[in-house]
Each structure stands twice: as C-alpha cells, then as structure tokens.
C-alpha cells in the first residue's frame, strides 16, 4: 500500500515521515507491551493467547533450527510461483477476451460461477491431482490468482473509453493495432490493481493448501503448532506470513512503478 503523505510543512522541525515511523513503532511496542503485561498479570490465560516473550523465544528457536526460514522459503516460493503463473495467464486471458467478444459472452456465466466459487473448496481435488508436494499449493495459488487477474483485466478492457476505440477505427486501425496501442496499455492500471489483490490471494492459496495436506511450509507450521496448542509457534508463523505479505506487496509496488505510465 502506498499512503499519501502530505509534503513536509514549512516551519515544521520533524518530517512527517519520521512522525509516522515513530507512530508505527510506538503502536507495535504498545501492543506487545500491553499483551505481555496482560499475560503476566494473568488478565489473559497464556494457553489461549500465547505471550510476546514466549513468541520471541520460539522465534529464536525456530530460526536456530532452520525450520522457520525453510518454511518461509517454501511458502514464499509456492505463493510467488502461483502468483506469477496465475497473474500472467489471467491477465493475458482477460485481455484476450476483449479480442473475442463473442467468446467472452459465451464464457461469461462460467467465469462468474467460477469466480463465485470459494476456490478453497477445490483444494481436495487439487491435492488429488497434484499430490501433497509444493505443486498442489502452487496450483491452488495459481487458480485463485488466475481468476482474479482474469476478472480485473477483462473488466478493465471493457472500461476503455469507447471514443478512443472509435478514434482508432476512424484512423483506419486494425483490431490488433487498437488492442496493442490502446486497450492493453489502458488496462494496465486495472491489471496492477489485480496484482495487488493477488498478493493476498496467492498467500491464502499456498497456506490453505498447506493446511489441508503438507509436510512443510508456514501453513503447515501454523497448523501443526495449533494442533499441539503451541500458540507461540502459531504466532511466529503468522508474523512470518505477514512479513511475507509485506515483501510480496513491496515487490508489486516496484513492478507498478516500472509498468505505470
């Protein structure tokens, strides 16, 4: 997410960026501090909520035995590969539907139906087809992100100013020229917003795949720790997932800067 920040005001000694950063740090420390106090004062039972100091200890342990890094890499890899496959083919398919409006009309109800289906429900099928290795997680992530990218690219292409398309026609442009010079670049902001949504969806796909059947990954770590009531380990896994989401989101931001016109 990019958040608009007002330009540094004249006369102000502290830059707004610094203030925001300080605010974020204060919020984090406050949150964990209060949590720790609540546990130590026994306002909250530790077996239901975990404990920041315990989480930190768990974090060190899981880093030391390599399992956290290994799990993060696995989930990151599954999400990233699924994301790239899904976004690429989804965007291409969505744009291609603009070129074949009849096919788009034929496919419309099917796309809507598949979009409405919680893709998680497909997970058992995908496990059966792709096994319990990373392929099935990549597949879940790819399918979810494919549909999202397809929908955003297709709606974006539909929203292209009809006057522009008419202008191209009056210039004698072919369908292909109109597509390459107008529709594809005009749809780019939509495609990018699809990518942004898909960061979350790719992680959901990978983690849910790991919940259902896996031997590694953050989803597996969280799920397994949960069955053992090791809530501190669950939290470590969750924070690692958040971090992964931030990293992927940042990657999309870089991509956006590169692609945007």
């Amino acid at each position: 997410m990019t958040i608009a920040v007002p330009a540094r005001q004249r006369g102000s000694l502290v830059s707004p960026w610094l203030l925001i950063l300080l605010g974020q740090i204060a919020l984090t420390i406050g949150f964990f501090g209060l949590w720790e106090i609540a546990i130590r004062a026994q306002w909250l039972p530790v077996y239901l909520y975990g404990q920041p100091s315990g989480i930190a200890g768990k974090f060190v342990t899981l880093i030391a035995d390599g399992s956290l890094i290994q799990s993060t890499l696995v989930t990151g890899f599954e999400s990233l590969v699924g994301f790239v496959i899904g976004c690429f083919f989804g965007s291409v398919a969505g744009l291609a539907l603009w070129l074949t409006p009849r096919l788009a009309l034929v496919l419309r109800p099917f796309i809507v139906a598949i979009n409405g289906l919680p893709k998680i429900a497909l997970a058992p099928l995908i496990i059966v087809w792709f096994g319990i290795g990373i392929e099935s997680k990549i597949a879940v992530a790819a399918i979810i992100t494919f549909i999202v990218s397809l929908m955003t690219a297709f709606s974006g292409a539909q929203e292209v100013d009809q006057d522009l398309i008419r202008l191209m026609r009056s210039l004698g442009a072919t369908q292909r020229q109109t597509f390459v010079k107008i529709v594809a670049p005009a749809t780019m902001p939509w495609i990018i917003s699809g990518l942004r949504l898909n960061v979350g969806f790719a992680l959901i796909g990978a983690v849910v795949g790991e919940y259902i059947a896996a031997k590694q990954g953050l989803g597996y770590l969280v799920y397994y720790a949960g069955t053992l009531y090791d809530l501190n380990a669950v939290w470590v896994g969750l924070f690692a997932l958040m971090l992964l989401a931030l990293v992927l989101d940042y990657a999309v931001t870089l991509l956006e800067r590169w692609l945007s016109w």
């Binding site: 009056s170 210039l171 005009a186 016109w261």
Partner: peptide, 26 residues
C-alpha cells in the same frame, strides 16, 4: 477509414504517451 480526421470536445490524448507520441498516433 482515414479520409476524415476529427477532433472532439474531449482531447482523447493517451495518458501513457508523450505529446510527441500522441501526435504520431495516426
């Protein structure tokens, strides 16, 4: 196509193209 060039109230410039590349579109 292409015998008549038109211009509307809306400029219909392509925002991702520079001035030069907008002029060369036709």
């Amino acid at each position: 196509k292409g015998h008549v060039g038109y211009m509307l109230q809306k400029d219909m410039l392509l925002p991702w193209r520079s001035v030069l590349d907008n002029v060369t579109l036709g």
